[in-house]
Amino acid sequence: MAEFTKVTTVDKLPPGRGASVRIGATDVAVFNVGGVFHAIDGVCPHQGGLLGLGRLSGCVVKCPEHGMRFDVTTGTSPGAPPGGGLACKVFEVKVEGDDVMVSV
């Protein structure tokens, strides 16, 4: 059974915003896309920028370091051909009351 950790509260992460949090040794990027919360691996697979500090446009976040982009709902690069490739792991998110919780 997945273990969830509280990472923030609903009021601290309004729609259109993201944040970087740590759960154990894992950096997690959590986002509010139109009221729905999503979480992906927080470290950009290019050179390790913190995706949670990137600017969110719709459901696409842009890494603050070198601009690599990811769809935060799927962890994949927007517009990329179908298949695997360089993707961020997607983490399960749930909201309990005001708490936003992530399972890594």
Partner: peptide, 22 residues
């Protein structure tokens, strides 16, 4: 110089605050 730093401990949250972390 292309580095930004994570919040130092569990339970803390870092958000976009200009370029402070860089």
């Amino acid at each position: 110089g292309s580095i930004s730093f994570a919040p130092p401990a569990d339970g803390e949250m870092a958000q976009w605050q200009g370029y402070d972390t860089r």
